[in-house]
């Protein structure tokens, strides 16, 4: 058996009940995808937290670069017109 340092890292997503989204719960080490799913079951659903599990290799997740946070995320600030609440209902429009 390879040492744990050789076991890849997996990210775990748990859906707590039908109709809700899977939410990132944490990560774990496992030798392969089947064991990753079993480990996720044992680590993250032992208090009845879930009805569905996803595991994804951490290296397969593409993340935004923290250093380009300004360029990536600050642009929407001040652009109130992108929110529906910015607009007033026109006179005479019913059922809005």
């Amino acid at each position: 058996m390879s040492h744990k340092s050789n076991w890849p890292l997996w990210e775990v997503f748990v859906r707590s009940s039908r109709g809700l989204s899977h939410v990132h719960a944490g990560s774990l080490h496992a030798p392969d995808k089947e064991m990753a799913l079993r480990n996720a079951r044992d680590l993250y659903t032992r208090r009845n937290e879930g009805v569905s599990l996803w595991v994804v290799r951490s290296t397969d997740i593409i993340t935004s670069d923290p250093d380009s946070k300004d360029a990536f995320f600050e642009s929407p600030q001040g652009k109130d017109y992108r929110h529906a609440t910015y607009y007033k209902a026109s006179e005479g429009v019913k059922h809005l």
Partner: peptide, 10 residues
């Protein structure tokens, strides 16, 4: 309540 750590006793 809608989080991944919701606990229900069953």
């Amino acid at each position: 309540l809608a989080s991944a750590t919701r606990v229900t006793p069953g």
